[in-house]
Design a protein around this nucleic acid. Structure first.
Length: 561
DNA sequence: TGGCTGACTTGACAGGATCTTC
DNA sequence: GAAGATCCTGTCAAGTCAGCCA
């Protein structure tokens, strides 16, 4: 299935057949006993107004609803959907009371959870039926799983960070909004009764099955295949092959950008410093963004003067650059990095006579950078450096950390540490889990108990040894052997618990999943598992094994990235 | 060259499913 | 078998980058 040949990029498929997206269920009216109150008085709302009110009510215990921008955006959009009478009456969000609606949904949710087993099973079966019909497509004779076959339900927009559009109304997607993509000779999906599609087309140069434009940002949304599909797998493989190509030319590229640090051309000089950051720190490219339309986040090319501070000396190191900015998803990037003298001098030059809000690399854009990279290597773009550096780091760390004689849990700790090094490089963070402190305490209690158990077992061993010394018979000898084994077993368990605790503590605020799924060539992990006798299931769960089926089939223990 | 659009990947997180513990 | 912890999966926002057009 994964023969070593690449698909022609222009043509993606010959046959594509599916049932179209599955639409979010229609809104159901609130029961009569659940009220919305305005200015302390119950008020019956029209269908549309009520539906939007429920979106807000459901989010009442979320931090979003405490934010002014969210409240204002919500209220503005809500008013637009009201009847003229409602609009006349409802003037202030502060006078709206959604509590009863909120409680109603909370109780409904609890009731759903408390449903008897049989009821739950019934619901599960219904969901499976839907999945069976809408969740798969036929592409070039293969039945493949679809990634997201449901349209996004209406609700309030949840932008990340300080998003200026948070709280706006995300409208219901209707069949009339949806473009269907399928092959000409296939059975065209049926729109829901009484509706029609916006368009049905056959474009085999793209991989999506259906698309629509969302109303908040005017962006396109797509129904696409699941990562386990052959099409996605091939693309994934290609991505890592490009990154492996970079391995062959990276030292040449590095020499060149170092030379360019002294270029007389400002464009080249800025480009060379930016590329150095992208390579060394695995920064994202940093496309320009429309001001006021999204949260204020940056990447390398869009860094502003205010995002870095220069320290000739800091913590005993020279030429330190302190980065502090919000990156993708408004995740903070904070790092103090010693750099080469020439880079430091260049940064001083780039910052000269600029205001904090000015672009650091004012002569550089992501497209000019990528054009340059394309000239250096076919298929090379800024993000390839991230993939390359992530994968090579994993490989190097695994090499350095794995001890052949270690137990499987110890090897897994090494693997996680290697994975963690990558996640730190790529700045993949997560919020500390809510239950972290408590579960850490529980784990510590277990460790303490195990220690006691070990001490007891050791004392016991000492006793039977003395007994054997005195008696010197077979029975007492067997007892000694038995106790010895017991002590070993407990020691092993204790070591395992300790490793688990270390792993957990080190992982407190770091997300491993993103790098594992998107940046680490899975063949490195497969090879490592084969080489060190670690079952692949310990590294990849079922879904991940499906996504990386190509790598599992392809890589042997000698694979080198 | 730069703005815009479309296609696709990357990313954090919520909540459901499953496992573990008592 | 209930409760709690952990894992897994889906969701959907937010990036990257190529190609088109003026």
């Amino acid at each position: 299935m994964w023969e070593e040949e690449k698909r022609d990029d222009g043509v993606k498929w010959q046959q594509l057949e599916h049932h179209g997206p599955y639409f979010a269920p229609p809104y159901e009216r609130l029961p009569d006993h659940v009220h919305f109150y305005y200015n302390g008085k119950p008020m019956k709302l029209s269908l549309a107004t009520e539906e939007i009110a429920t979106f807000y009510a459901k989010m009442l215990d979320h931090e979003y609803t405490t934010k002014d921008i969210f409240q204002n955006n919500f209220f503005n959009d809500w008013i637009k959907e009201m009847t003229p009478e409602e609009r006349k009456k409802i003037r202030e969000l502060g006078k709206c009371n959604f509590e009863e609606i909120h409680t109603y949904f909370a109780e409904k949710h609890e009731a759903q959870k408390a449903l008897p087993k049989e009821e739950k099973q019934k619901l599960k079966e219904e969901a499976e039926k839907i999945q069976e019909k809408y969740g798969y497509c036929i592409i070039d004779g293969h039945r493949e799983k679809i990634g997201n076959f449901k349209t996004e339900p209406p609700g309030l927009f949840r932008g990340r960070g300080n998003h200026p559009k948070m709280g706006m109304l995300k409208k219901r997607v209707m069949p009339e909004d949806v473009i269907i993509n399928c092959s000409k000779d296939s059975a065209i999906p049926q729109p829901p009764p009484g509706h029609k599609w916006k368009e049905v087309r056959c474009d085999n140069t793209v991989t999506w099955l259906a698309s629509w434009t969302e109303n908040i940002q005017g962006a396109l949304k797509y129904v696409m295949l699941n990562p386990s599909s052959k099409l996605k797998g091939e693309k994934d493989w290609q991505k890592y092959e490009v990154a492996r190509c970079l391995k062959g030319v990276v030292s040449k590229i590095r020499s060149q950008y170092r030379a360019d640090w002294k270029s007389k051309d400002m464009k080249i000089r800025q480009r060379s410093v930016a590329l150095y950051f992208i390579d060394k720190l695995a920064l994202r490219a940093g496309n320009e963004k429309e001001e006021g339309e999204t949260a204020d986040t940056v990447g390398c090319c869009s860094l502003r003067v205010e995002h870095i501070s220069l320290h000739p000396h800091l913590d005993g190191k020279e030429n330190v650059v302190e980065f502090d900015f919000l990156g993708k998803d408004s995740i903070r990037y904070y790092n103090k990095v010693p750099v080469e003298k020439q880079v430091f001098k260049n940064l001083q030059l780039f910052m000269k006579k600029k205001n904090p809000g000015d672009d650091l690399f004012d002569w550089l854009s992501t497209s000019s950078l990528n054009k340059h990279l394309q000239d250096l290597m076919d298929g090379l773009t800024a993000k390839v450096f991230r993939t390359y550096n992530a994968s090579i780091t994993l490989q190097e760390q695994l090499e350095a950390l794995t001890n052949e004689d270690d137990s499987v849990p110890a090897k897994l700790l090494s693997y996680n540490r290697a994975n963690r090094a990558v996640a730190i490089l790529c700045n993949h963070q997560r919020a500390t889990p809510k239950t972290f402190e408590k579960s850490m305490q529980n784990l510590q209690a277990k460790i303490d108990a195990k220690k006691d158990q070990l001490a007891e077992a050791k004392a016991e061993l000492k006793r039977v040894k003395a007994d054997h010394k005195a008696k010197k018979d077979v029975k007492s000898k067997t007892a000694v052997e038995k106790k010895k084994k017991m002590v070993e077993k407990i020691e092993e368990q204790l070591a395992k618990l300790n490793m688990h605790a270390t792993d957990k503590e080190e992982n407190k605020q770091i997300a491993l999943g993103t790098s594992k799924l998107n940046y680490l060539d899975p063949r490195i992990s497969v090879a490592w598992c084969k080489k060190f006798g670690v079952p692949i299931e310990k590294i990849y769960n079922k879904t991940q094994r499906e996504k990386f089926a190509w790598a599992i089939a392809m890589a042997d223990e000698d694979f080198e990235f």
